[in-house]
């Protein structure tokens, strides 16, 4: 299917038009007008404030983490012992819990969110699309402690009785994923609550991106005899793909950093197990739980290093996202 070059979508790829690099700044400066120069200087300051803030946070967290880096080296990432009493600190269970719960959330949330976005843009009549869209956006506005409380009192008991216990009874002996005992509070509960929390973000962005697919593209497909399904699947979705990937990464970023709600349902046990029904622990949770009462410099430094690692993981995820979006838009541009 012939395709036009993909324009900027949802701010994911912001390629600057016009003169590039420092040349643009010089153009502004050579204006000669004092007001213009002040204006340019102010904007430059605003622009530099964010990288400066970023560098400052990275520097301070890094400095505070230094004692732990010296003490444990790379062992900090590979050790799974976390024992504040003995001064042994290893971050592996927290990294594992963060990554697994977030991936689980993405696996659950992406099909639902994209399905929802497609329904709202392609199929739903206006009188239905508006309230559903509104309700979805409302989900994003609920504070995470409310999700956590709902998780403790509604989701966790339901998961335990309706999902985990039956699955553990039937499949627990053959599949390690579903091995009991089923307590409810688990990596699975964490993944489900994260999924619910990130659906609004992914679907809202996906919806905007789908709505931005040009009308003539759709009409061309329909005129060539495509069914509605073929038009959505072969024209609209591929066209919107870079934006949808961007939306997914936005959701993943939020899932990685979510603290309150997941702390309340994941069981907070620093262990690595194959079972989704077993309790786990995330990096953000251990920071929230132990930072306030951490006594001892090494303990604090170890928590800081976890913060630094979380920072690092987020940067890696975002870089992968940028790369994916770039690759996809490149390919669809050439096709």
């Amino acid at each position: 299917m012939a395709m036009q070059p993909v324009p900027e979508q949802a701010g994911v790829l912001a390629a600057a038009p016009g003169p590039s690099g420092w040349a643009r700044l010089r153009v502004r400066r050579s204006g000669g007008n004092v007001a213009d120069r002040i204006y340019a200087a102010c904007l430059l300051a605003f622009g530099l404030a964010i990288p400066a803030l970023f560098a400052f946070i990275l520097f301070r967290v890094g400095m505070s983490a230094l004692p732990a880096m010296r003490e444990f080296g790379l062992g900090f990432i590979t050790s799974s012992r976390w024992n504040p009493v003995e001064g042994e600190f290893g971050a592996l269970p927290f990294i594992f819990g963060t990554v697994v719960s977030s991936l689980l959330a993405i696996v659950l949330a992406v099909p639902l969110a994209i399905g929802l976005a497609v329904f709202l843009t392609e199929l739903a009549p206006r009188w239905l699309a508006a309230p559903i869209g509104f309700a979805t956006e409302l989900l994003a506005a609920i504070p995470s402690v409310i999700y956590g409380l709902w998780g403790i009192f509604v989701l966790v008991p339901w998961l335990r009785e309706a999902i985990q216990q039956p699955l553990a009874d039937r499949l627990g002996d053959t599949l390690a994923f579903f091995r009991g005992p089923a307590y409810g509070s688990s990596i699975m509960a964490g993944g489900v609550i994260l999924a619910i929390m990130i659906v609004p973000f992914i679907s809202a962005v996906s919806r905007e991106v789908l709505a931005a697919v040009p009308r003539d593209q759709r009409e061309a497909a329909l005129a060539l005899g495509a069914t509605r399904w073929e038009m959505t699947w072969q024209v609209a979705l591929p066209y919107a793909l870079p934006g949808i990937i961007g939306a997914t990464i936005l959701g993943l970023g939020r899932a990685l950093g979510e603290t309150m709600a997941i702390t309340m349902v994941i069981g907070n046990r620093p262990e690595i197990t194959a079972s989704l029904f077993a309790p786990g622990y995330t990096m953000a949770s251990v920071l929230a739980n132990e930072f306030a009462e951490a006594s001892g410099d090494l303990y604090l430094a170890a928590l800081m290093e976890i913060g630094l690692l979380l920072f690092g993981i987020t940067i890696i995820v975002n870089s992968i996202a940028r790369f994916l979006v770039w690759r996809v838009s490149l390919r669809s541009g050439k096709a």
Binding site: P84, V85, N268, R269, P279, S295
Partner: peptide, 13 residues
């Protein structure tokens, strides 16, 4: 300790 390495069980906040 104020936080210890629990041999068994579930953690709640």
């Amino acid at each position: 300790g104020k936080s210890v390495r629990w041999p068994t069980g579930l953690g709640a906040k």
